[in-house]
């Protein structure tokens, strides 16, 4: 096992897949010469050349459209959007085109493409640079939504995404890039639609992904000192969703908390809470709790931002609310 940082796991996955399949190529804003704003593509232009690692103009809609067209010709494009905030500029391409084409063309086209983008707030980037909007895309049929939290999951799932015959939105997190984790030396791939129980526990199930996973694990440590054993589940992919692992955990613990960094109103947590009550209404000992961002644009001031975004303390409080 080697210890890698999250961004290095991205780089390794890209490097290995590019070396394995010459149809794979990368493009986006500043991905080439400088190796990406978050260093994810460092060294790849030097290794694979400027045709396969291509700096593009700042034109997010066209970047996604390029991926679609290139995929139709038989390439396997990996487009980087510098941040998820810019995916909003490309919404028409992602929602109206990427996600609709295979179905509306009666299965006539396949789009093996990956759109990578880092999301998230927490470092005073204010309203237009702090989005966690995975719920928008989970609400859109036709695109896979992969959202890993650890270097191990990043590498295994990014390789699977690149080999997928379907379009994938691969959401990274800006504040996780420097986190470390063990990654095997040998090749491995992780399947879509398989949640990972990151910490087993008998008293309450916490479902958390992306940056909320380390926060949930922190909360679990805090609660363990008070004698509460939390089971932490990371779905890792939100489309497809491994509903079974979540439901069977809640069936055992009878209590559930869902933690997400995105907004609370109509968030992914709302969907998961609905599914849990649909299937397990009579098994629940307490109402399902949601921990999420305050429904305001992310503020700049440090204290306000901290109030707006959820953290380990909020998750612990939600657990305590239904376990005491």
């Amino acid at each position: 096992m080697a210890e890698l940082r999250y961004f290095e796991a991205v780089t390794q996955a890209l490097q290995e897949e590019m070396a394995r399949d010459d149809r794979v190529f990368l493009f986006g804003e500043d991905v080439g010469l400088v190796g990406g704003t978050f260093r994810c593509t460092e060294g790849l232009m030097a290794e694979f050349g400027s045709r396969r690692v291509r700096d593009t103009p700042i034109a997010e809609a066209a970047i996604v459209g390029l991926a679609i067209g290139a995929a139709i010709t038989g390439m396997r494009p990996v487009a980087e959007l510098m941040t998820m905030n810019f995916a909003i500029v490309a919404m028409d391409q992602i929602v109206n085109h990427v996600s609709k084409m295979r179905y509306m063309f009666g299965g006539g086209v396949k789009l093996p493409l990956v759109i990578r983008a880092p999301a998230g707030g927490g470092t005073q980037k204010a309203a237009q640079h702090s989005h966690c909007i995975e719920s928008w895309f989970v609400n859109t049929p036709g695109i896979r939504v992969v959202i890993p939290a650890t270097p191990y999951d990043v590498k295994g799932l990014l390789k699977t995404s690149i080999r997928s015959e379907d379009p994938v939105l691969f959401i990274e997190h800006e504040n996780l890039y420097s986190t470390r984790g063990e990654v095997p030396e040998e090749e491995y791939l992780l399947p879509f639609g398989v949640a990972d129980i990151k910490r087993p526990g008998r008293d309450v199930t916490v479902v958390a992904w992306s940056r909320m996973l380390p926060e949930a694990l922190k909360a679990a440590d805090m609660l363990a000192r008070e004698g509460i054993e939390v089971e932490v589940i990371d779905p890792r992919t939100l489309d497809p969703l491994d509903q079974d692992t979540i439901l069977s955990s809640v069936a055992r613990t009878h209590r559930a908390v869902i933690a997400e960094e995105g907004w609370r109103n109509v968030g992914v947590g709302a969907e998961l809470a609905a599914r849990i009550q649909e299937h397990l209404f009579y098994d629940l000992e307490a109402p399902v709790q949601r921990v999420a961002a305050a429904d305001v644009p992310t503020p700049y001031a440090r204290n306000l931002e901290k109030l707006a975004l959820p953290d380990a303390r909020d998750i612990a409080d939600a657990v305590l609310k239904i376990t005491l």
Binding site: L66, G69, Q93, H97
Partner: peptide, 21 residues
């Protein structure tokens, strides 16, 4: 395609694929 202009980046991507291949 039924979003006015929405297919033009796709056209560009087709041409990029042709060039790369």
């Amino acid at each position: 395609y039924a979003i006015v202009g929405g297919h033009l980046p796709i056209a560009t991507g087709l041409a990029l694929g042709i060039q790369m291949r």
